[in-house]
Every structure is written in C-alpha cells, then in structure tokens.
Design a protein around this nucleic acid. Structure first.
Lengths: 359, 359
DNA sequence: GAGGGAATGATATACGTCAATCATTTTCTG
DNA sequence: CAGAAAATGATTGACGTATATCATTCCCTC
C-alpha cells in the first residue's frame, strides 16, 4: 500500500513511463487519447508527484526575495529578524532567502527596488503601499511569472498573488471595542473622552485604524477627540500629548495608533492619580514594558514572526503551484494584556544528540 | 556555491565516501582519527544532510499518532478536524497520521490506550491528564524511543518530550484582567460581583483558570462569588445559573470556564436591562454567535488549528532529531472580541492550473 | 502504398543519500 | 613476523523524478 509512482501510473494507463512523463510535465507531442488515459490513471490511483524527489532531480533550490523597510523601528526590525529565523529553519527545505532593505515611507524608492529586482527568484514578498508605479512594478513581476506576496500593507488586490497581514480597519475596531469595554461602567453623564494619537494622516494603515476605532465608538457615548499627529516620533509625542492632556484633563482613554510610544510612556509615568486607559500597537520592548508596569492596558499586535512564517508557506505553495495554505492560520489582530504576554523562553530543551548519532 | 554533499565532506576529510558515511550514520568500525577528520570537515564545510534525499533513499514515511478525546464537544471536534486538515497538507512531506479517539475524562481508558498503542510510529501526541498510570505509559513509550508530545493538558514535565498548549493559569489571569478592565470605571461603593462557572472542580485546567482569575481579581475590589458547577452540560448550566442570577441579581460579570455555553447564551438572551460582562472559553459556533450577537463580550481561545500545526512541527523535529521549532510561535491564550474574529474565507483564490501544466 | 511527421517506447544519467558487499590495506597481538 | 582483527576504499543498486536521446511504430496524406 505504498504511494503510487509515475511508473504505476504509466502501467495503469497502458503507456510507457516516457509518455506518462510527457503528460505530467506537459512536454507536448502526446496524442489526446494517451493524455486522457494518463490523467485518468492519475485520478484513479490518487497519484501525487513526490515533490522532494522532483526537486532533488532538478537540483532545484527555492529563492525567495523579501523587500522590507529598513530603519530601526521596532516592528520592522522584528520583521527582518523573523526572516532570518525562517531562513535558518527552512534551509533544510532547500529554501534560500534574500533580504533587501528599502528606505521607509519612500514609495519611489520601493518602486525602483521592485523594478530593478533581479528576476532570479521564485517569489517576492514586499511591504507595499498603493501607488500606480508600485502596482505597475508588481504587475511586471507577475507577468514574468514571479508571484508577489504583499506583507503588512497591501497593494491592488488583483495584481498581487496574496496578501498576508492584518486588516487595519479590524485592528482599529478591536481597539475601539476595548475602549468601550473599559468605559462601559461609566455613568451616562460622563461617558468619557478618548484621544487618538496618529503617526501621519497620509499613512493608509494609520487612517484605517482610526476609522475602525471611530466606527465602533460611534454611538457608544464616548467622544473621540481630534487625533494628535506625532510623526511616529518620541519627542513630538511628548510635546503634543502633554499639551493635549493639559488642555483636556478629562481624557479617559488614549489610543496610540502608530510609533513613538517611548515618549507616551514617559508622560504616563508622571501622571499622579487616575490614569487614562491606554492602548498601543505592536508588541515591542517598549510597549511590553508598558504593559508589565501597568502604564499600558492593552497592546494590539500583528505577530510579525507568524506573519513571515505564513508568507513563506504561501510563497512555497505559489512556487509549487499548490493550493494556498489553511486560512485558519490567518493573521488577526491579537490583543495582549499584562497577563497573556508570550514567554521569551524556549518550548523545551531538545534532547542532546550523542556525537555521530543518527536521528 | 551549491550546498556541500557528503562526497565533498569525504574529499575534504581525505577519506572515502564510505568512511564518511560510516561516521555520519554511526555504523562503527571507524578509527578515531578518521572520525575526527570527518566531523571537522562537516564543521568547516557547514555540511547538512539533505533530509529529503535521505528519506527518499530510506523509503521513510513518518507516522504520527494522535490520541484525542472523542465525543461531540466543540473544542475536541475542532482539534480532530485540525488533524485531518494537517494530514492532507503534510502528505506531501511523507507524513501519515493516525487518529484514535479516547473516551473523554476517563484517565484509565487513556492509560490503556497509551499502553496498547502500537509501537509502529515515530511520535505520539496526546491530550494528557496527570495520573501515575498515564505517566508510566508515557515513560514506557519514551523508553521505546517514541517521543510523546502532550497537547492541551500536560503530564509530568520530565517525561514527555514537549508540551504544546496554553497555560491555563495564564488563560484565567487573562480573563481576570478583562473583568477588571470592564469593571474599572465602577464606583468604589459598588465594585461589582463576578460569577465563575466551572465544569468540574476535579478538572485541572478548570481549576487553573479559576485560580488565575482569582489571582488577578484579588485586591481589585470585585468580589468573586463561589463557582457554579455545571458538568459542562447545557441543561445544568441553564438551571443553576438561572438560580444564581435570581439569588444575586447584582452580578456584573460572568466567567464561564468550561463548556455548556449554549445554555448560558439562552439565559443571557432573556435578560432585559443591563447584562453582565460575559467571558467564555474557546471559539466555537456557539461562542462565536454569542460574540456576534453581543450577548458575549470576550472569548478566550487556544487556537486548536495552530496548536495541531505546531505539534506536528514539533513531532517532525523530534523524529528528525532536530532542534524544536521557534518558540515565538508558541501558543498563548488569544482574546477574541466581536471585532477581531477570524474570517471564514480563504486567503485568496489559487491561480487555476492549466491541464497538464507543470508547476 | 510510399513518404513524412507525429507519437511512442526503451533506455540512460543525474540528483544526494542509504545500505550493503567485497577486496584491500592498516594496525594490533602474541 | 605471521596471523587475526580492524579499518578503509571502491562499487553497486535502490528511492522517485527530470531530462535527454534514439529507435521504432503509428497515422495521415497524396
């Protein structure tokens, strides 16, 4: 009862191995009748090509390229580290990675990087924004049979092969929901004031989050103040949020949509008396410390490591022409509170392997 | 710059392929000097055995056995479905699964199943409870070089090879934290009453969750009432929780620790006026509907599909004698609210493959 | 029914490893 | 130093597929 091989298929179809191979690999010069008989045999035997044997024979090594924003923002650093981690895990699967850093928030630089990308790879993953030039570059890659997976931020849906990342409107809605929960016991006469803090209004993901939060808070009674813009910078965060708190002392909730949270935590630490309910994005050393110290109440995370792992699974499936992996492993915004932070410890120590011992 | 093969290693070590093979596969009859030179060559060349070629040569097919509770509890059904899903995904990796259903909550039956388990597999995954007989059975399997991975519930940590699942104390703490957040705006004179509902006090996971919640709520002002025990049954849930609500109308929060939530949702739907803040466990059709309708405020989930996927990764790594996979993909209790529910839709439709087209 | 192109079969080599055999060389022991 | 034991080298046939070559057979057309 072992798995059928192509030999078995050929025998069952009453043709030679060579013909079965010609059908399987679409080499042409096969009579329609033979093609049908081979496909029929594949069907009835439940034949599946042994990918590992095939790749071994071809000497194939997968090559996946990542185009990720550089710079020292914690989130992108985490993404890049996740790529390194996957690289060492997947070497065994004959997968090679290339990681190119692109200037952050520079859509022309990204477009150029995509245009100049060497066509020597099996798939590309890129943190995209939606501009015509970038869309054109992605379409060109697709035309060259290099599927493009968008990561974190999406491009036009009909061009890229798949998007792996959270929906930022949903992330914003989730934050809004937590705000409602934190405010639900307040008296109707004082439902609460919520201050959103944003990196830039031009950033699509930030706008989406704000929009999502607003949608959930509408009609809840809580008033959403005008967003403070801080350019993802700690210093501007300190300045402008301090000013906002001075102007509106009754603020009962803060939703920090982008980065620069170190500045916000400094401010929170100095507040005496009741602190507002605070939600931040992305689990970084800073936000984690904020949760642990109790200055931050919730962090909404997109699990960069899992995102990269899923992206690699998707790219592999695309390269093999297989179905895309289980959507149940899809990325949804994760809520971290003080108590469900992931451990920084390994699962369990591996059993030591004696020298020369074979698995 | 292709990957070095064992031939390359042999050449570099100045020995024949046969000797290098004898070292790599610990076949014995090799001089210590040769062993050293080969290991040295492996080191300097960075040689890694090509697992796929090796398995092809051996004709090896991995065989993993799952021992999962049967019955129609949604959570265990989800676990079993996840195994089926992995089975079809991993067939390509030459992994075969066997799934045995064991009576729920019957530790003797589980122990027997473990004792009688055919020794024809490469690893076992089991939803374990901690009894001496089960521990002994697991130890026996380990002694027979069959690593055992515990799932959902752990056994003695020094016997099993790895545990894949959430920490239920942490899950309980997370629920407690959400309760605190939902109650944080209440006046000090009326901090709130919280009703825990439990399946059975004898269930370790339920006890742990309750303990975790209690730890976080201690000192918060909210009073944790005595737990109502409902045996994970809808009918008892309806009866006893109705009674509890009648007796203590001021209940402001309900923490349902186990199953039987269909009964609870029936009750909640009938409440007119302000409803208590409700937390349940495990995303099932029932709890999902509860979230969507607004009767339930939060669900704490352990992501069974991901849990199974991680367990398979772990078993594969154990079977290959490799390091265990990235702990960053570890399982932490996930908080679902109305707005961050996972989509039931696929990631993206796969590109259609022309007849006979080769990937 | 001959000629020509299309279709098919037979066969070989390679991919990297495992597992085995057999001949040969080295090392050890008394 | 002989003889035995240990170590090594050389080689071979799997595993399932890819890819290529060459000879043969089939079918269509004129």
């Amino acid at each position: 009862m072992r798995k059928p091989t192509l030999q078995d298929v050929a025998r069952a179809a009453g043709v030679s191995y060579a013909t079965a191979d010609r059908v399987l690999n679409a080499r042409g010069n096969v009579a329609e009748k033979s093609t049908r008989r081979v496909l029929q045999a594949i069907e009835t035997l439940g034949y599946e090509r042994d990918l590992h044997a095939a790749n071994l024979s071809r000497g194939r090594i997968y090559h996946f390229r990542f185009l990720l924003p550089g710079g020292d923002h914690s989130f992108f650093r985490a993404l890049r580290q996740a790529v390194e981690a996957e690289a060492s895990l997947r070497r065994i699967d004959r997968i090679r990675f290339s990681l190119t850093e692109v200037p952050t928030l520079d859509s022309d630089a990204l477009a150029r990087a995509l245009e100049e990308l060497p066509r020597d790879c099996d798939a590309v993953a890129v943190v995209a924004t939606e501009t015509p030039r970038i869309s054109a570059a992605i379409a060109a890659l697709s035309a060259a049979h290099i599927p493009v997976v968008t990561l974190v931020g999406d491009a036009a849906a009909d061009i890229r092969a798949a998007y792996v990342g959270i929906d930022n409107i949903i992330a914003g809605r989730t934050a809004g929901r937590l705000m409602r929960i934190a405010h639900m016991a307040r008296p109707a006469t004082d439902p609460g004031l919520i201050l959103p803090i944003i990196g830039a209004m031009s950033a699509r993901d930030h706008r989406d989050r704000l929009m999502g939060a607003k949608a959930v808070l509408d009609g809840s009674g809580q008033q959403l103040l005008e967003a403070v813009v801080v350019d993802d910078r700690h210093d501007l965060m300190r300045q402008r949020v301090t000013a906002a708190l001075a102007k509106t002392p009754a603020i009962s909730g803060i939703y920090s949509i982008g980065a620069g949270n170190r500045g916000l935590i400094d401010i929170l630490a100095r507040i005496s008396g009741p602190r507002p309910f605070v939600i931040m994005h992305d689990l970084t050393p800073t936000t984690r410390a904020g949760l642990e110290s109790g200055l931050v109440d919730a962090v909404i995370d997109q699990k960069p490591a899992q995102e990269i792992a899923l992206a690699v699974d998707v790219m592999k499936a695309l390269a093999d022409g297989r179905e895309l992996p289980d959507p149940a492993r899809d990325i949804t915004p994760t809520i971290y509170v003080k108590d469900n932070l992931p451990a920084a410890l390994p699962l369990t120590a591996p059993a030591p392997l004696a020298a020369g011992e074979t698995p």
